[in-house]
């Protein structure tokens, strides 16, 4: 079972060196214990471009699709047998990156 663990941020500064070190340690643990699928940090929402090609002609819009105080700063995709395991891992991830996280199952 795969879960998306989204990192929710509300500050503009990126991770501190301490946070980065804690994230690295957490990632290594995910890999060692077989929970790792993929992970990555994202550039600021202002670097986003929205594309709408539903009408057959691609329209590009500068900026995120949703302006909000909180935004997605990065994510993990983990594999876990059930939500209890996923929640525990996510709690450690939240501590490591010092941000709120959201756990959402893949279909």
């Amino acid at each position: 079972m795969h879960y998306l663990v989204s990192v929710i941020d509300d500050q503009s500064s990126s991770g501190t060196p301490d946070e980065m070190a804690a994230i690295d340690a957490f990632n290594e643990r995910l890999q060692a214990e077989g929970h790792w699928v993929f992970a990555g940090g994202l550039a600021a929402p202002s670097a986003a471009t929205v594309i709408d090609n539903r009408g057959g002609e691609a329209l590009f819009t500068d900026g995120p699709f949703l302006e909000s105080k909180e935004y997605l700063a990065g994510f993990w995709i983990i594999t876990a047998p059930d939500l209890d395991v996923a929640l525990k891992l996510a709690a450690e991830g939240s501590k490591a990156c010092n941000r709120k996280v959201e756990v959402r199952p893949f279909l």
């Binding site: 079972m1 879960y3 047998p81 059930d82 939500l83 209890d84 996923a86 756990v103 959402r104 199952p105 279909l107």
Partner: peptide, 14 residues
């Protein structure tokens, strides 16, 4: 169902 909340008694630790 979708998030796989398990059907079990939690472990002693939890």
């Amino acid at each position: 169902k979708a998030a796989r909340i398990p059907y079990r008694v939690p472990s002693a630790e939890d």
